[in-house]
């Protein structure tokens, strides 16, 4: 079943926590949602909640940060950093998180599932 191009609402904008994360459950998939707010912009990111190195569903409880210009989520277990845009692990090239398209429409957080 292809779910491409179909936006699914998972929660309200107000459920997100600024500069931190929450987790949504969608079709058995745990998805970590982050909202980064700076002086002149607000961005939302969605990646898989599974920490592939720590082997636990915890990434939404990590710290947000930046490495040079790259926005990252830092695993709360062993501190590996993952690019929020590509899902790539900055500390281990072989590892990558699933990244989900995400948007805010009319104060609703919407996701697209990926295969």
């Amino acid at each position: 079943m292809s779910t491409q191009d179909k936006w699914i609402t998972v929660c309200s904008d107000t459920d997100l926590v600024t500069n931190s994360g929450v987790c949504a459950l969608l079709n058995e998939q745990q998805i970590a949602l982050f909202k980064i707010k700076s002086a002149n912009s607000e961005q939302v990111f969605a990646v898989s909640n599974w920490d592939p190195i720590g082997k636990a569903n915890v990434l939404y409880r990590g710290l947000l940060g930046s490495v040079e210009k790259v926005n990252v989520i830092i695993s709360p277990l062993y501190k590996q950093r993952y690019c929020l845009v590509s899902g790539l692990c900055l500390d281990d090239e072989a590892i990558k998180l699933v990244v989900y398209p995400v948007r805010i429409e009319q104060n609703q957080v919407q996701l697209q599932l990926v295969d």
Binding site: T18, R61, L63, L64
Partner: peptide
């Protein structure tokens, strides 16, 4: 809230399984 390591955020010590 966004500054704390997970242990401080959740006021507990995270173990290996989360």
């Amino acid at each position: 809230v966004s500054l704390q390591d997970t242990n401080d955020t959740y006021l507990g010590n995270m173990q290996k399984d989360g």
